[in-house]
Design a protein around this nucleic acid. Structure first.
Lengths: 188, 188
DNA sequence: AGTGGCATGTAAGGCGTTACATGATTTC
DNA sequence: GAAATCATGTAACGCCTTACATGCCACT
Protein backbone atom coordinates (compact mmCIF):
# COMPACT_ATOMS: atom_id res chain seq x y z
CA UNK A 1 0.00 0.00 0.00
CA UNK A 2 2.91 2.33 0.70
CA UNK A 3 3.74 1.83 -2.96
CA UNK A 4 0.57 3.63 -3.95
CA UNK A 5 1.08 6.39 -1.42
CA UNK A 6 4.48 7.09 -2.98
CA UNK A 7 3.14 6.82 -6.53
CA UNK A 8 0.36 9.20 -5.58
CA UNK A 9 2.82 11.71 -4.18
CA UNK A 10 5.12 11.45 -7.21
CA UNK A 11 2.04 12.05 -9.33
CA UNK A 12 2.22 15.67 -8.19
CA UNK A 13 5.96 16.17 -8.75
CA UNK A 14 9.32 14.36 -8.75
CA UNK A 15 10.79 13.93 -5.28
CA UNK A 16 13.60 12.22 -3.41
CA UNK A 17 13.09 9.67 -0.65
CA UNK A 18 13.81 12.36 1.89
CA UNK A 19 11.25 14.67 0.28
CA UNK A 20 8.67 11.91 0.29
CA UNK A 21 9.11 11.40 4.01
CA UNK A 22 8.40 15.08 4.58
CA UNK A 23 5.47 15.03 2.22
CA UNK A 24 3.81 12.04 3.85
CA UNK A 25 4.42 13.37 7.35
CA UNK A 26 2.76 16.64 6.44
CA UNK A 27 -0.15 15.37 4.40
CA UNK A 28 -1.24 11.79 5.01
CA UNK A 29 0.34 11.04 8.40
CA UNK A 30 -3.14 11.24 9.78
CA UNK A 31 -4.04 7.88 8.22
CA UNK A 32 -0.77 6.60 6.76
CA UNK A 33 2.83 6.77 7.87
CA UNK A 34 6.19 5.23 6.96
CA UNK A 35 9.76 5.34 8.19
CA UNK A 36 12.48 6.65 5.88
CA UNK A 37 14.13 3.24 5.69
CA UNK A 38 10.89 1.69 4.46
CA UNK A 39 10.43 4.48 1.92
CA UNK A 40 13.90 3.84 0.47
CA UNK A 41 13.19 0.11 0.18
CA UNK A 42 9.83 0.72 -1.44
CA UNK A 43 11.30 3.19 -3.93
CA UNK A 44 13.85 0.58 -4.93
CA UNK A 45 11.06 -1.95 -5.50
CA UNK A 46 8.99 0.54 -7.51
CA UNK A 47 11.96 1.34 -9.73
CA UNK A 48 12.58 -2.36 -10.34
CA UNK A 49 8.93 -2.70 -11.42
CA UNK A 50 9.39 0.20 -13.84
CA UNK A 51 6.76 2.38 -12.16
CA UNK A 52 9.24 5.13 -11.33
CA UNK A 53 12.69 6.25 -12.57
CA UNK A 54 15.50 7.91 -10.65
CA UNK A 55 17.94 10.68 -11.52
CA UNK A 56 20.97 11.61 -9.42
CA UNK A 57 21.16 15.33 -8.69
CA UNK A 58 24.44 16.58 -7.28
CA UNK A 59 24.45 19.53 -4.93
CA UNK A 60 27.29 21.81 -3.89
CA UNK A 61 27.17 21.56 -0.10
CA UNK A 62 24.67 18.76 0.59
CA UNK A 63 24.96 15.07 -0.32
CA UNK A 64 23.63 13.99 -3.72
CA UNK A 65 19.89 13.66 -4.08
CA UNK A 66 18.22 10.81 -5.93
CA UNK A 67 15.08 12.26 -7.44
CA UNK A 68 12.31 9.89 -8.48
CA UNK A 69 9.68 10.52 -11.15
CA UNK A 70 6.60 8.50 -12.00
CA UNK A 71 6.56 6.70 -15.39
CA UNK A 72 3.53 6.21 -17.69
CA UNK A 73 3.32 2.63 -16.35
CA UNK A 74 3.32 4.09 -12.85
CA UNK A 75 0.52 6.50 -13.74
CA UNK A 76 -1.48 3.61 -15.06
CA UNK A 77 -0.90 1.45 -11.99
CA UNK A 78 -1.90 4.35 -9.74
CA UNK A 79 -5.08 5.11 -11.66
CA UNK A 80 -6.18 1.50 -11.75
CA UNK A 81 -5.64 1.16 -7.99
CA UNK A 82 -7.61 4.35 -7.38
CA UNK A 83 -10.46 3.10 -9.53
CA UNK A 84 -10.81 -0.34 -8.03
CA UNK A 85 -13.21 -0.42 -5.09
CA UNK A 86 -11.94 -1.09 -1.57
CA UNK A 87 -14.40 -3.52 -0.02
CA UNK A 88 -12.76 -4.00 3.38
CA UNK A 89 -12.30 -2.12 6.61
CA UNK A 90 -8.80 -1.70 7.97
CA UNK A 91 -8.24 -3.25 11.36
CA UNK A 92 -7.48 -0.73 14.07
CA UNK A 93 -5.03 -1.45 16.87
CA UNK A 94 -4.91 0.57 20.05
CA UNK A 95 -2.59 -0.26 22.93
CA UNK A 96 -4.39 2.02 25.36
CA UNK A 97 -7.69 0.23 24.82
CA UNK A 98 -6.03 -3.16 25.11
CA UNK A 99 -4.55 -2.23 28.46
CA UNK A 100 -7.77 -0.70 29.68
CA UNK A 101 -9.72 -3.84 28.86
CA UNK A 102 -7.59 -5.92 31.22
CA UNK A 103 -7.04 -3.28 33.92
CA UNK A 104 -9.68 -4.22 36.49
CA UNK A 105 -7.01 -5.03 39.08
CA UNK A 106 -4.90 -1.95 38.40
CA UNK A 107 -4.91 0.83 41.03
CA UNK A 108 -7.48 3.49 40.31
CA UNK A 109 -4.90 6.29 40.45
CA UNK A 110 -2.56 4.47 38.05
CA UNK A 111 -5.41 4.09 35.59
CA UNK A 112 -6.40 7.74 35.93
CA UNK A 113 -2.81 8.90 35.42
CA UNK A 114 -2.71 6.79 32.24
CA UNK A 115 -5.95 8.22 30.90
CA UNK A 116 -5.01 11.81 31.71
CA UNK A 117 -1.66 11.39 29.99
CA UNK A 118 -3.43 10.21 26.87
CA UNK A 119 -5.87 13.11 27.06
CA UNK A 120 -2.91 15.48 26.81
CA UNK A 121 -1.42 13.67 23.84
CA UNK A 122 -4.69 13.57 21.89
CA UNK A 123 -5.41 17.22 22.68
CA UNK A 124 -2.18 18.13 20.89
CA UNK A 125 -3.25 16.15 17.83
CA UNK A 126 -6.61 17.91 17.60
CA UNK A 127 -4.93 21.30 17.86
CA UNK A 128 -2.61 20.34 15.00
CA UNK A 129 -5.43 19.30 12.67
CA UNK A 130 -7.24 22.54 13.35
CA UNK A 131 -4.33 24.85 12.67
CA UNK A 132 -1.22 23.54 10.93
CA UNK A 133 -2.81 21.03 8.56
CA UNK A 134 -5.61 23.43 7.63
CA UNK A 135 -3.07 26.19 6.88
CA UNK A 136 -0.95 23.88 4.75
CA UNK A 137 -3.92 23.00 2.53
CA UNK A 138 -4.97 26.62 2.17
CA UNK A 139 -1.43 27.59 1.11
CA UNK A 140 -1.29 24.87 -1.54
CA UNK A 141 -4.48 26.01 -3.25
CA UNK A 142 -3.37 29.63 -3.24
CA UNK A 143 -0.09 28.68 -4.90
CA UNK A 144 -1.71 26.21 -7.35
CA UNK A 145 -5.33 27.06 -8.15
CA UNK A 146 -5.51 24.08 -10.53
CA UNK A 147 -5.43 21.84 -7.44
CA UNK A 148 -8.87 23.02 -6.34
CA UNK A 149 -10.41 19.55 -6.59
CA UNK A 150 -7.43 17.93 -4.90
CA UNK A 151 -7.72 20.39 -2.04
CA UNK A 152 -11.37 19.50 -1.47
CA UNK A 153 -10.33 15.89 -0.86
CA UNK A 154 -7.33 16.87 1.26
CA UNK A 155 -9.62 18.98 3.38
CA UNK A 156 -12.00 16.02 3.72
CA UNK A 157 -9.17 13.85 5.06
CA UNK A 158 -8.14 16.61 7.45
CA UNK A 159 -11.69 16.84 8.76
CA UNK A 160 -11.60 13.08 9.24
CA UNK A 161 -8.59 13.31 11.51
CA UNK A 162 -10.17 16.16 13.39
CA UNK A 163 -13.50 14.37 13.90
CA UNK A 164 -11.94 11.12 15.00
CA UNK A 165 -9.59 12.80 17.42
CA UNK A 166 -12.43 14.86 18.87
CA UNK A 167 -14.43 11.68 19.39
CA UNK A 168 -11.40 10.06 21.01
CA UNK A 169 -11.01 13.02 23.36
CA UNK A 170 -14.69 13.03 24.30
CA UNK A 171 -14.46 9.32 25.06
CA UNK A 172 -11.37 9.88 27.21
CA UNK A 173 -13.19 12.57 29.20
CA UNK A 174 -16.21 10.33 29.74
CA UNK A 175 -14.02 7.38 30.71
CA UNK A 176 -11.99 9.45 33.17
CA UNK A 177 -15.25 10.56 34.79
CA UNK A 178 -16.51 7.00 34.90
CA UNK A 179 -13.37 5.73 36.59
CA UNK A 180 -13.40 8.64 39.05
CA UNK A 181 -16.95 8.02 40.16
CA UNK A 182 -17.65 4.29 39.68
CA UNK A 183 -14.42 2.47 40.06
CA UNK A 184 -13.57 2.10 43.73
CA UNK A 185 -16.74 0.97 45.50
CA UNK A 186 -16.11 -2.20 47.55
CA UNK A 187 -12.96 -3.39 45.73
CA UNK A 188 -11.20 -6.60 46.42
CA UNK B 1 1.59 -6.88 22.24
CA UNK B 2 -0.50 -9.89 21.27
CA UNK B 3 1.41 -11.66 24.05
CA UNK B 4 -0.25 -9.45 26.62
CA UNK B 5 -3.66 -9.80 25.05
CA UNK B 6 -3.34 -13.57 25.39
CA UNK B 7 -1.94 -13.35 28.92
CA UNK B 8 -4.82 -11.07 29.85
CA UNK B 9 -7.37 -13.49 28.46
CA UNK B 10 -5.76 -16.47 30.19
CA UNK B 11 -5.87 -14.41 33.39
CA UNK B 12 -9.62 -15.07 33.41
CA UNK B 13 -9.46 -18.80 32.68
CA UNK B 14 -7.40 -21.48 30.91
CA UNK B 15 -8.11 -21.70 27.19
CA UNK B 16 -6.89 -23.33 23.99
CA UNK B 17 -5.63 -21.43 20.96
CA UNK B 18 -8.95 -21.96 19.28
CA UNK B 19 -10.79 -20.62 22.33
CA UNK B 20 -8.53 -17.59 22.42
CA UNK B 21 -9.37 -16.75 18.83
CA UNK B 22 -13.06 -16.78 19.70
CA UNK B 23 -12.47 -14.77 22.85
CA UNK B 24 -10.48 -12.06 21.12
CA UNK B 25 -12.92 -11.87 18.20
CA UNK B 26 -15.81 -11.35 20.59
CA UNK B 27 -14.21 -8.99 23.08
CA UNK B 28 -11.25 -6.96 21.86
CA UNK B 29 -11.62 -7.24 18.07
CA UNK B 30 -12.70 -3.64 18.19
CA UNK B 31 -9.12 -2.49 18.89
CA UNK B 32 -7.04 -5.64 18.59
CA UNK B 33 -7.18 -8.68 16.32
CA UNK B 34 -5.07 -11.70 15.46
CA UNK B 35 -5.22 -14.65 13.10
CA UNK B 36 -5.29 -18.17 14.52
CA UNK B 37 -1.88 -18.95 13.06
CA UNK B 38 -0.37 -15.99 14.88
CA UNK B 39 -2.07 -16.99 18.12
CA UNK B 40 -0.56 -20.47 17.91
CA UNK B 41 2.91 -19.03 17.32
CA UNK B 42 2.57 -16.56 20.17
CA UNK B 43 1.39 -19.26 22.56
CA UNK B 44 4.44 -21.31 21.70
CA UNK B 45 6.68 -18.31 22.47
CA UNK B 46 4.87 -17.59 25.74
CA UNK B 47 5.29 -21.19 26.86
CA UNK B 48 8.99 -21.05 26.04
CA UNK B 49 9.30 -17.94 28.22
CA UNK B 50 7.57 -19.77 31.07
CA UNK B 51 4.65 -17.35 31.21
CA UNK B 52 2.07 -20.03 30.41
CA UNK B 53 1.88 -23.84 30.58
CA UNK B 54 -0.03 -26.25 28.36
CA UNK B 55 -1.99 -29.42 29.08
CA UNK B 56 -3.26 -31.80 26.42
CA UNK B 57 -6.94 -32.61 26.84
CA UNK B 58 -8.23 -35.52 24.80
CA UNK B 59 -11.82 -35.52 23.66
CA UNK B 60 -13.97 -38.37 22.41
CA UNK B 61 -15.19 -37.09 19.07
CA UNK B 62 -13.18 -33.88 18.52
CA UNK B 63 -9.39 -33.55 18.05
CA UNK B 64 -7.29 -33.09 21.16
CA UNK B 65 -7.28 -29.68 22.75
CA UNK B 66 -4.14 -28.03 24.12
CA UNK B 67 -5.28 -25.91 27.03
CA UNK B 68 -3.03 -23.12 28.24
CA UNK B 69 -2.93 -21.64 31.74
CA UNK B 70 -1.10 -18.56 32.99
CA UNK B 71 1.80 -19.14 35.43
CA UNK B 72 2.75 -16.92 38.40
CA UNK B 73 5.54 -15.50 36.25
CA UNK B 74 2.92 -14.79 33.60
CA UNK B 75 0.69 -13.02 36.12
CA UNK B 76 3.61 -10.89 37.14
CA UNK B 77 4.55 -10.01 33.56
CA UNK B 78 0.94 -9.08 32.83
CA UNK B 79 0.57 -6.90 35.90
CA UNK B 80 3.81 -5.06 35.30
CA UNK B 81 2.80 -4.36 31.71
CA UNK B 82 -0.60 -3.10 32.83
CA UNK B 83 1.02 -0.82 35.40
CA UNK B 84 3.62 0.76 33.17
CA UNK B 85 2.35 3.88 31.43
CA UNK B 86 1.84 3.94 27.67
CA UNK B 87 3.24 7.25 26.46
CA UNK B 88 2.63 6.88 22.73
CA UNK B 89 -0.24 7.00 20.28
CA UNK B 90 -0.72 4.08 17.92
CA UNK B 91 -0.50 4.95 14.27
CA UNK B 92 -3.73 4.51 12.39
CA UNK B 93 -3.82 3.24 8.82
CA UNK B 94 -6.83 3.61 6.56
CA UNK B 95 -6.84 2.53 2.95
CA UNK B 96 -10.04 4.40 2.13
CA UNK B 97 -8.57 7.71 3.30
CA UNK B 98 -5.34 7.06 1.40
CA UNK B 99 -7.27 6.49 -1.81
CA UNK B 100 -9.50 9.47 -1.24
CA UNK B 101 -6.51 11.76 -0.75
CA UNK B 102 -5.21 10.98 -4.25
CA UNK B 103 -8.58 10.68 -6.03
CA UNK B 104 -8.94 14.11 -7.60
CA UNK B 105 -8.85 12.63 -11.11
CA UNK B 106 -11.21 9.75 -10.35
CA UNK B 107 -14.72 9.90 -11.81
CA UNK B 108 -17.21 11.44 -9.42
CA UNK B 109 -19.55 8.44 -9.65
CA UNK B 110 -16.73 5.98 -8.94
CA UNK B 111 -15.82 7.95 -5.86
CA UNK B 112 -19.42 8.12 -4.69
CA UNK B 113 -19.88 4.37 -5.19
CA UNK B 114 -16.78 3.81 -3.07
CA UNK B 115 -17.98 6.07 -0.27
CA UNK B 116 -21.48 4.61 -0.25
CA UNK B 117 -20.09 1.08 -0.09
CA UNK B 118 -18.05 2.04 2.96
CA UNK B 119 -21.07 3.68 4.55
CA UNK B 120 -22.84 0.32 4.43
CA UNK B 121 -19.91 -1.53 5.95
CA UNK B 122 -19.46 0.91 8.81
CA UNK B 123 -23.20 0.99 9.48
CA UNK B 124 -23.03 -2.76 10.17
CA UNK B 125 -20.21 -2.24 12.65
CA UNK B 126 -22.12 0.38 14.62
CA UNK B 127 -25.15 -1.88 14.79
CA UNK B 128 -22.95 -4.66 16.18
CA UNK B 129 -21.47 -2.53 18.93
CA UNK B 130 -24.91 -1.39 19.97
CA UNK B 131 -26.47 -4.84 20.21
CA UNK B 132 -24.26 -7.95 20.18
CA UNK B 133 -21.28 -6.62 22.11
CA UNK B 134 -23.47 -4.88 24.68
CA UNK B 135 -25.45 -8.10 25.23
CA UNK B 136 -22.29 -10.15 25.64
CA UNK B 137 -21.02 -7.90 28.41
CA UNK B 138 -24.36 -7.87 30.21
CA UNK B 139 -24.45 -11.68 30.13
CA UNK B 140 -20.96 -11.98 31.60
CA UNK B 141 -21.75 -9.83 34.63
CA UNK B 142 -24.97 -11.69 35.29
CA UNK B 143 -23.10 -15.00 35.27
CA UNK B 144 -20.12 -13.67 37.26
CA UNK B 145 -21.01 -10.75 39.56
CA UNK B 146 -17.40 -10.60 40.82
CA UNK B 147 -16.46 -9.23 37.39
CA UNK B 148 -18.36 -5.99 38.04
CA UNK B 149 -15.24 -3.83 37.77
CA UNK B 150 -14.02 -5.71 34.71
CA UNK B 151 -17.37 -5.16 33.03
CA UNK B 152 -17.18 -1.40 33.60
CA UNK B 153 -13.96 -1.33 31.61
CA UNK B 154 -15.27 -3.68 28.93
CA UNK B 155 -18.27 -1.42 28.52
CA UNK B 156 -15.92 1.58 28.21
CA UNK B 157 -14.09 -0.12 25.35
CA UNK B 158 -17.40 -1.00 23.70
CA UNK B 159 -18.49 2.63 23.91
CA UNK B 160 -15.17 3.57 22.31
CA UNK B 161 -15.89 1.42 19.29
CA UNK B 162 -19.38 2.79 19.06
CA UNK B 163 -18.29 6.44 19.28
CA UNK B 164 -15.51 6.10 16.79
CA UNK B 165 -17.69 4.27 14.30
CA UNK B 166 -20.44 6.84 14.68
CA UNK B 167 -17.92 9.60 14.00
CA UNK B 168 -16.67 7.66 10.98
CA UNK B 169 -20.22 7.34 9.66
CA UNK B 170 -21.00 11.02 10.18
CA UNK B 171 -17.82 11.91 8.31
CA UNK B 172 -18.78 9.57 5.45
CA UNK B 173 -22.20 11.23 5.18
CA UNK B 174 -20.65 14.70 5.12
CA UNK B 175 -18.06 13.66 2.58
CA UNK B 176 -20.63 12.04 0.29
CA UNK B 177 -22.63 15.28 0.39
CA UNK B 178 -19.51 17.31 -0.30
CA UNK B 179 -18.61 15.22 -3.34
CA UNK B 180 -22.19 15.31 -4.62
CA UNK B 181 -22.43 19.08 -4.50
CA UNK B 182 -18.89 20.45 -4.92
CA UNK B 183 -16.97 18.01 -6.98
CA UNK B 184 -17.85 18.44 -10.63
CA UNK B 185 -17.86 22.17 -11.37
CA UNK B 186 -15.62 22.98 -14.33
CA UNK B 187 -13.48 19.80 -14.28
CA UNK B 188 -10.53 19.21 -16.50
C1' DA C 1 -22.84 -34.18 -1.29
C1' DG C 2 -21.22 -29.96 0.54
C1' DT C 3 -20.62 -26.50 4.02
C1' DG C 4 -19.25 -25.16 8.42
C1' DG C 5 -17.43 -26.00 12.91
C1' DC C 6 -13.82 -28.01 15.74
C1' DA C 7 -8.80 -28.31 16.34
C1' DT C 8 -3.77 -27.77 15.50
C1' DG C 9 -0.14 -26.41 13.19
C1' DT C 10 3.85 -25.08 9.22
C1' DA C 11 5.78 -22.24 5.40
C1' DA C 12 6.47 -18.37 2.57
C1' DG C 13 6.38 -13.90 1.94
C1' DG C 14 5.37 -9.05 2.95
C1' DC C 15 5.55 -5.19 5.76
C1' DG C 16 7.44 -2.53 9.28
C1' DT C 17 10.55 -0.81 13.14
C1' DT C 18 14.90 0.03 15.25
C1' DA C 19 19.48 0.27 15.19
C1' DC C 20 23.57 0.95 12.73
C1' DA C 21 26.68 3.51 9.43
C1' DT C 22 28.43 7.83 7.31
C1' DG C 23 29.31 12.67 6.93
C1' DA C 24 28.88 17.65 6.02
C1' DT C 25 26.45 21.96 7.30
C1' DT C 26 23.67 24.97 9.83
C1' DT C 27 21.63 26.72 13.90
C1' DC C 28 21.40 27.50 18.90
C1' DG D 1 30.20 22.59 21.56
C1' DA D 2 25.90 20.22 20.77
C1' DA D 3 21.89 19.38 18.29
C1' DA D 4 19.21 19.49 14.24
C1' DT D 5 18.90 19.19 9.23
C1' DC D 6 20.12 17.25 4.93
C1' DA D 7 20.79 12.80 2.60
C1' DT D 8 21.13 7.76 1.66
C1' DG D 9 21.21 3.40 2.73
C1' DT D 10 21.88 -1.77 5.15
C1' DA D 11 20.92 -5.36 8.68
C1' DA D 12 18.47 -7.65 12.12
C1' DC D 13 14.53 -8.63 13.92
C1' DG D 14 9.60 -9.02 14.82
C1' DC D 15 4.97 -9.19 13.52
C1' DC D 16 1.40 -10.40 10.54
C1' DT D 17 -1.21 -12.41 6.59
C1' DT D 18 -2.19 -15.95 3.38
C1' DA D 19 -1.91 -20.27 1.89
C1' DC D 20 -1.25 -24.94 2.76
C1' DA D 21 -1.93 -29.43 5.34
C1' DT D 22 -4.87 -32.69 7.95
C1' DG D 23 -9.12 -34.86 9.50
C1' DC D 24 -13.46 -35.88 11.86
C1' DC D 25 -18.27 -34.57 12.92
C1' DA D 26 -22.80 -32.32 12.46
C1' DC D 27 -26.09 -30.22 9.83
C1' DT D 28 -28.64 -29.08 5.54
Amino acid sequence: MLKFALLGALGYQPMSGYDLKQFTDRSISNFWHAELSQIYLTLKALEKEGLITSTAVSQSTRPDRKVYAITPAGQKALQSWLNEPFTGIDQYKDTLLLKLFFSARVERETLLAQLRLQRGLHQKLVDGYNSETADLIAQSVEAHPELRKDALLWEATRRFGQSIEEAYLRWLEETIQMVETNFSLEDE
